[in-house]
Design a protein around this nucleic acid. Sequence first.
DNA 1: GGGACGCTTCGGCCGCCGCCGAAACGTCGT
DNA 2: ACGACGTTTCGGCGGCGGCCGAAGCGTCCC
Lengths: 229, 229
Amino acid sequence: MSRDRDFSTIGRALATPARSAFLNLLMDGTSRPAGELAQAAGVSASTASEHLAILVEAGLVTCAAQGRRRLYRLADASVAEALEALGVLADPTPVTGYRRSRQAEHLAAARFCYDHLAGRLGTALARAWVEAGWLAGRDVLALTTAGEDGFRALRVDVDGALVARRPTTRACPDWTERRPHLAGALGAAVGRRFLEAGWVVRHRAGRGLAVTGPGLAELRERWGVSLRG
Amino acid sequence: MSRDRDFSTIGRALATPARSAFLNLLMDGTSRPAGELAQAAGVSASTASEHLAILVEAGLVTCAAQGRRRLYRLADASVAEALEALGVLADPTPVTGYRRSRQAEHLAAARFCYDHLAGRLGTALARAWVEAGWLAGRDVLALTTAGEDGFRALRVDVDGALVARRPTTRACPDWTERRPHLAGALGAAVGRRFLEAGWVVRHRAGRGLAVTGPGLAELRERWGVSLRG
DNA sequence: GGGACGCTTCGGCCGCCGCCGAAACGTCGT
DNA sequence: ACGACGTTTCGGCGGCGGCCGAAGCGTCCC
């Protein structure tokens, strides 16, 4: 069975709560220093370092030195996709402590899922773009010709997304909402454009996104998108 | 971070070569007794029983008693999808022994990927159906209106696939070919139809498919599909 | 250059887990 | 009813791996 895949090595890499926590923290596509990951996961710096080495060894995470810090991030979009698929199977971890609620609410509103918009913002946009005829297939989110023009008008790099090596569009299951949001090369291009235009801003330390005033008004006017829970 | 997913429990479930081998054996959607899995993975019956209990506990496989035997199978299509996504990251296990070559060749030609056709057969069909205009998007495989009629003419249950809870179509990365094959509700409907019509037959003990004479001729005539490597 | 800082490496401890054989349990066939 | 068979449970062994503190290494800052 030379076609068999070895799930055990990757499985081992995922198999501890600390490493799972690290991956969750990195799933928004950000780069984070080892110390921050250690503190967030509640392990000592030395333990975190060992865990991170294992994740790098497994090819799930890459490390970039920046001065005396080392920044870790997911290795690849395919890693994020695999973790998303696994997340569909995994139960959400129980809420620990009441301080989480505001934070969780914040994340549910708008966040990045590796390189594309997720949360209520991501799913609402996907829904709106399907209704506008820009994307076809409620659960497929295929780009239509109308969508090509529409996204171009938003100054999203549609042409780059059309010739990218990975699929132009992909429906990514949103863990907090029940609906998919837009991923794939176009999803990433949309995310870049939203950041570049300042419609969303990455939250400093946290994982969420702030939606700026003009962006929020634009969203509500054009697509009837509301971020109310 | 109540949105976090616990990858560690599922990771543990995947984290041994024996359990990885079991999942590989079950990825074609078949149900297999514990003893067969034990023998295939090269562990004792008692060890296999423990491993299978762990996989059941993790929700990855289910167990159905049949007489004095117990048949194990993947729990769900979402499990197969997650394993596919993980398989993209995982290296293929090294070929062990030359006897594998015929077997591997056999699997590369045609096999089931949980509930849909894969291997050269699956990817060639997907390509042909894109060229025929039945599916749109080389890497998306969205169903077109022409495709609805076409698949109906093949007596594939298109309408069931259109209203299924899961996406109608999904592009599933084929590990042996470089191209995607058709998955999702329609992929499963196509697989059922091919079995029902006798165009393909599940191989007795192995994981491959036999393509029957009439089916093969039909494939070649209608879609120019060849199974030659 | 000296000290603070971030990270990794090392050594040692402890617990978990994979492995097996033997025994128990339930089912099938005669 | 009895033995054969498939599977699970149990007990015990051995090794891997997660955890930490201390020490080592490189970088930044005054």
